[in-house]
Simulated assay, not measured.
Amino acid sequence: MLHLFKRSLLNKVTLSLLCLASVSLTGCMDNEPDMPEPTPVAYTSFYHGSPDAPAMDVQVNSQVVFNQSLPYSTYTGYVTLNTGSTNFKFTPSNASNAYLDTTLNLKQGQAFSLFAINTLDDMELLVVQDSVKTPADGKAALRVVHLSPDAEAVDVVAIGDKEVPFSSDLAFKDITLFHEFDAGRYDLEVKAAGSDEELLTVPKASFEAGRAYTLVIRGFAFPPSGNTNALAGQIFRNY
């Protein structure tokens, strides 16, 4: 992801070097039209984390972004958007009324994650400005977000060659920073905060060097009748 943020700067540097190299022959093509400046862009990802809500459409400035509605637990990856005041809506499929409606001022190079969370009756939008940074050599990065509306606060550790703690007393709607650790394969254990009570495990999760990931704790600790979205852990790669 980081190389995308630097592309416009690289273009400018490359153009300057070419100009210097050819100035004695062509005056850097003084008679040619100027190259247009790259359009400034920002990046936004979307996640459907409301465990009793139907599939939803995502609209940006009243335009539907994806060809299909997003089912529960879907992560879209980053979408490139123009900068400036931008309206976001989560709506029922093929409908104009919005469950969620917010406007953000996007600036060049910024990255945001938008999580639709909580139950359908109390749906909220969790907006997170992401810190996009390539992990150090041999390292991966992981953050944890607690999206279970009825689960208690949790501690999260990764068990591999050594134990790596990722969060302590993480409550609903809390999200950690990206934490770097040795790349490899781990069992992720989610426990009730301050205890050894294991709520769930994500076994044999693989983390690649140079990549950043999110662990979402989602679903109902006590699903209502007819709902099968029980407490679970989901890992997706951000970049």
Rank of each mutant, 00 (worst) to 15 (best):
S73Y: 12
R211V: 12
T39L: 09
Q108I: 12
L100G: 05
Q129S: 08
F166C: 08
T91P: 01
L10W: 08
L18R: 00
Y72L: 12
T83Y: 05
N118Y: 04
L25P: 00
D122R: 15
N82Y: 11
K133W: 00
H48K: 12
E197W: 00
N238D: 15
V60R: 04
V23C: 02
N97H: 10
R211W: 07
G194R: 10
P36M: 12
T44Y: 00
A98G: 01
S168G: 14
N61A: 03
N31D: 11
T14N: 08
K173V: 11
Q110N: 11
H179T: 14
I159L: 13
L200W: 02
S22Y: 05
N97M: 02
P149L: 14
S168W: 07
L18T: 08
D52C: 02
K173P: 12
S96G: 11
R218K: 14
S24W: 02
S167I: 03
L17F: 06
D52S: 04
N238Q: 15
E32M: 10
L231K: 01
F66T: 04
Q234C: 03
N31K: 12
D196A: 14
V190F: 06
E208M: 13
A171R: 11
F66A: 04
Y78T: 15
S50H: 01
I235F: 02
L142H: 00
C28Y: 02
Q63P: 01
L177N: 15
K162L: 08
T102A: 06
G84I: 06
F236L: 14
L199R: 07
V58R: 05
G226D: 12
S113I: 06
F220N: 09
L231G: 03
D34V: 12
V128Q: 11
L100H: 02
N67T: 15
V127F: 01
L170G: 00
L25A: 12
E208I: 15
L104K: 05
K107I: 00
N227P: 05
N31S: 10
T39G: 08
S69N: 10
G160M: 09
P224Q: 09
R185P: 02
H48V: 09
F5A: 07
A171Y: 08
L170R: 02
K107S: 05
P38R: 05
N31E: 11
M123K: 03
P165I: 11
P135A: 07
A232Y: 01
H48R: 12
S225D: 14
L106T: 04
A212V: 13
G160I: 05
V79M: 10
H3K: 10
I117G: 01
F222R: 07
I217A: 14
S50C: 06
A151D: 13
V216C: 06
S206W: 03
P38V: 07
G109S: 09
S45E: 10
T44E: 00
L10H: 12
D155V: 15
A192P: 10
L4W: 05
V154H: 04
D52A: 02
A230V: 13
R7C: 00
S225I: 14
